[in-house]
Design a protein around this nucleic acid. Structure first.
Lengths: 376, 376
DNA sequence: CTGAAAGCGCTTACAG
DNA sequence: CTGAAAGCGCTTACAG
């Protein structure tokens, strides 16, 4: 079964030198053959191939990268929030796809909203000699990465922007998407719209709140902070917050949840109160099975895979040696009306009838819009 | 902002030699300090630290591994079905957790049911010099990996067994879990139970079918292949298959879906037929929001994270030099009754009343059971 | 077309 | 406690 290989024992690996010795050629000739150079005599080449095959020779990427002029390790790092959550998982997969086409492997890491872990992992990736990094950061201060950039490791920010650092970034259109969602609820008659927000120190959470505030004030509705819950991070925290608001004296007639898990928490709480056909809900980010719930959940969606693919392509442009000024792309959002966002408020609280408006504003095209580069 | 560092230009990185020169010590002394050896004079050590700091020195893992006797790269590979799917994503995250505790980074890859891709990625990982591999294989023949094992790279199989290879494996209890699910439906009066199966060449799919057949025949119900759909791979294929069966002359009164996506496809099809409160359904593997559907979906669940963590621990034991005989662990399943699996068949087809039985058989403990090792 | 020598950034194995 | 020399597996830069 496991045939004994000449001169090789368990745990050892054949090197180019071993292959050269067996084939009776020089080390350099083996190197040429293994690297597919065509200037090698056919007879020598076939002897090298035979020897490599016999010894189960595997080139050592690390040793090769160490000496090569380009120094490429053929690995990139992808540092995201949590690789087990659908958003991160979708991004990782899309990036892997782009990388695989170039024979590049992906080192993945979860940051878990920890700036400390972000520091550890970026440092670790630098030691591993990755060719570049795609990151959805946990920290709010990225100037420390300028050193890495200067040492030749490009960084691309995805889903969350860099702060105090010039770097490529690809984000969803948080502010506009949020405003669309809230306007949609207003159009259906709501004036008392609860807000469910992520850690407010996050730039993206801030933007989504701004969109909410903008849509309200534009419609002449004053902001009521008693129906805003911020710094929510989990399904359970969102569920509690919504439960509390629904039990209050003047409960919201609708909710806007700024993120996946918060939307799911809201679904739970609204069900707990048996109010799923009375209280409206719109979430930011689509999720699997949103269409199978009762009522199906309306969302403001964006193409997460496209966002991550674009980030990967930007990164590889830099790895290939291009040095454009830092770029800023925005992935558009689309409102998907499925039912939960179209529930009207109870008659008592309903706003005066308004002229019919057309469907919620949508981006003209589903492709990313470039923006002028900016710093965070 | 980006202060000019002495002698360093954009794109270059400081080496140990640079640090030694700046600190006025030998290369070897820098090596000692960086590696935390305590036998260095405090004054020299602080000079080295200062120089390393000033030059933003980052040790080069690859170069260090090349020369070290243990040859550890501090990376492992995790090759799963599809990193964007919840099952794979949960496993990757659990493995990352164990690896991070040891300062090991994780190279992730999706196999997409392609044996060819499995060959490419295992080869690539070998060239990257990973310290070990955790794999949920796509192919059905793993003898080719014996060479990798012999060259010192341990392999641990997770969720799917190796075939024609001796290696550690951690699997869910497919046969017993499936039999539990089908028995549960039989207990609720069903005799006509549709089967939704994965690619039948997969060992795991075969086992789940065996469990189905065993439960039926034990209950004296003959197997009817006209209500078995196999080789299903996607939500849509499962949806079509269930739709076709529901439209047939003698439709099943219940379905057993052997996997996540197939269960979701079945939910869709049963909804399409407005039969969700008449047709029963049990799935293998739990999924997010199964409890929020109407009816909530009953499943045979197992602890995917625990399965992957265990696989990681087995791998690191081997990386640490232990050489036990190949081990085989089985993760137990638990039946979670949520509603869809407890719907009785329509009276016409109902089986004669039976003596009440206790709740579905459950494993005595939620921990993994070791089994004697075996080959595939 | 082929190969001998040097060296990538580090650790090993010694000598002082 | 400190350091000079050799070498990990490979590519580079030359010479023939």
């Amino acid at each position: 079964m496991s045939q004994r290989l000449p001169g090789k024992i368990r745990g050892s690996r054949a090197t180019m030198n071993d292959v050269a010795a067996l084939a009776g050629v020089s080390l350099k000739t083996v190197s040429r053959v293994i690297n597919g150079e065509t200037t090698v005599n056919a007879d020598l080449a076939s002897r090298v191939h035979a020897a490599a095959e016999q010894l189960r020779y595997r080139p050592n990427f690390g040793a090769s990268a160490l000496r090569r002029n380009d120094r490429r390790s053929s690995t990139i790092a992808v540092l995201l929030q949590d690789l087990s959550n659908p958003l991160s998982a979708t991004m990782l997969r899309a990036i892997e796809e782009v990388a695989a086409q170039r024979g590049v492997s992906v080192l993945g890491g979860s940051l878990d909203e920890s700036p400390e872990r972000e520091h550890e992992l970026t440092t670790s990736m630098s030691r591993h000699g990755v060719d570049g990094v795609i990151i959805a950061p946990a920290s709010h201060e990225h100037h420390y990465l300028a050193v890495e950039q200067q040492s030749g490791i490009p960084y691309v920010f995805v889903d969350r922007p860099p702060q105090n650092l010039l770097a490529d970034q690809v984000l969803s259109d948080s502010r506009s998407g949020s405003a669309d969602a809230v306007r949609h609820l207003i159009k259906h008659g709501h004036r008392r719209i609860g807000f469910l927000g992520d850690s407010s120190s996050l730039f993206v959470a801030h933007e989504r709140h701004q969109g909410y505030v903008h849509a309200l004030t534009t419609a002449g509705i004053s902001v009521d902070t008693t129906i805003e819950a911020r710094d929510l991070r989990t399904i359970d925290r969102a569920r509690e917050a919504v439960g509390a608001m629904l039990g209050s004296a003047a409960p919201p007639t609708a909710f806007f949840a700024t993120q996946n898990l918060l939307t799911i928490g809201a679904v739970h709480a609204i069900r707990d109160a048996h109010a799923q056909h009375r209280v409206a809900l719109i979430g930011f980010e689509d999720f699997l099975l949103a269409d199978l719930l009762d009522p199906a959940v309306s969302v403001v969606a964006y193409d997460v895979g496209a966002m991550a693919s674009l980030a990967a392509r930007l990164l590889f442009e830099r790895i290939d040696g291009q040095r454009p000024a830092p770029r800023h792309f925005v992935i558009p959002t689309t409102l998907i009306a499925r039912g939960s966002g179209e529930i009207p408020p109870p008659p008592a609280t309903r706003a005066p009838a308004r002229a019919k408006t057309t469907a919620a504003a949508r981006r003209p095209s589903p492709t990313a819009r470039p923006k002028t580069s900016r710093d965070g």
